[in-house]
């Protein structure tokens, strides 16, 4: 293993999955990854292989079956919800319940870990909210209700909410799931810019393998046999992508650095 400095997130012998009474449904095991501060990390793999489960386990939405997750060298189950909320923020795929909150209010909810009991926004809170709105370029949306937004706009708003939460780590579960190519690339651009300018660590799961190879600093790749991690160049060099999918429909082209559909 190469030498890493400034590790912000680490897993040790981690097993993830679901505990149903006494039956354990292990989705993936022996996960040992280390993520450096200020990197854009993509978690890739085919459907159902455990990308979301890993992100949910890291963010304590669900429990680890075995092994440990360390955030800033502290086990994640030692964090209270409240402590974790100032270190790690989330952008989830689940639909928001229907309600009449405006984009501004939604982003302001990101300040809850810092506000007083009645949720009053201080100068500092407002500053952070406006900064998040600036960064995501959604100023024109802020008075709208969130249900009036397109999927692409909503995704930017949710990212702004996570930014307002002012955490070192932001975890996004398939942030481009419902987006067209144009909006997908815009989201990747935004995340790349944020990592560069704020030195936040952004971890996302995605099916956009080709784009992640271009945009991500690090990739965690789930294949049937093994979990690889490293820079895109390293993984290409190790031919890790070759086993991602069955070879009958798509194949990885090492020279083009992307997956190509087989000619029939």
């Amino acid at each position: 293993m190469k030498h890493l400095k400034n590790i912000i997130l680490k897993t040790e012998n981690l097993s993830i999955g679901y505990q149903n009474k006494k039956v354990q449904n292990i989705v993936a095991s022996k996960i040992d990854i280390a993520i450096e501060k200020g990197k854009l990390v993509a978690v890739l793999g085919k459907n159902g292989i455990g990308k979301s489960t890993l992100l949910r386990t890291i963010s304590k939405v669900q429990k680890a079956l075995k092994g440990e997750v360390f955030i800033n060298k502290k086990k994640n189950d030692r964090f209270t919800n409240k402590e974790l909320s100032t270190v790690l923020s989330l952008v989830l795929t689940e639909r928001l319940p229907e309600s009449q909150i405006t984009v501004f209010e939604l982003i302001a909810l990101g300040r809850q870990p810092y506000t007083n009991w009645i949720d009053k926004l201080s100068e500092n809170d407002l500053e952070k909210i406006n900064w998040a709105i600036d960064q995501t370029e959604i100023d024109h949306l802020k008075e709208k209700f969130f249900y009036e937004l397109s999927d692409g706009q909503l995704q930017r708003v949710l990212i702004a909410r996570a930014l307002a939460q002012d955490t070192d780590i932001i975890i996004l579960d398939e942030p481009t799931a419902h987006l067209d190519l144009h909006h997908t690339i815009k989201i990747f651009d935004l995340l790349k810019k944020l990592v560069k300018e704020t030195s936040k660590t952004i971890i996302l799961s995605s099916h956009e393998v080709n784009l992640c190879i271009k945009f991500a600093d690090e990739i965690v790749l789930f294949t049937d046999s093994k979990i690889h991690s490293g820079t895109p160049a390293e993984l290409i060099e190790n031919e890790a992508f070759d086993n991602l999918f069955p070879n009958d429909i798509v194949n990885f082209n090492k020279k083009l650095e992307q997956f190509i559909i087989n000619k029939s």
């Binding site: 919800n81 409240k82 909320s85 923020s89 319940p97 809850q112």
Partner: peptide, 24 residues
């Protein structure tokens, strides 16, 4: 009721978001 205004507002985003905002 006045003391739970904050959690009530966070519930508007669903339980997982509420939890990630530090709500018990």
């Amino acid at each position: 009721t006045l003391t739970i205004i904050k959690p009530l507002n966070s519930f508007l985003l669903g339980e997982n978001y509420a939890k990630s905002l530090g709500i018990n």
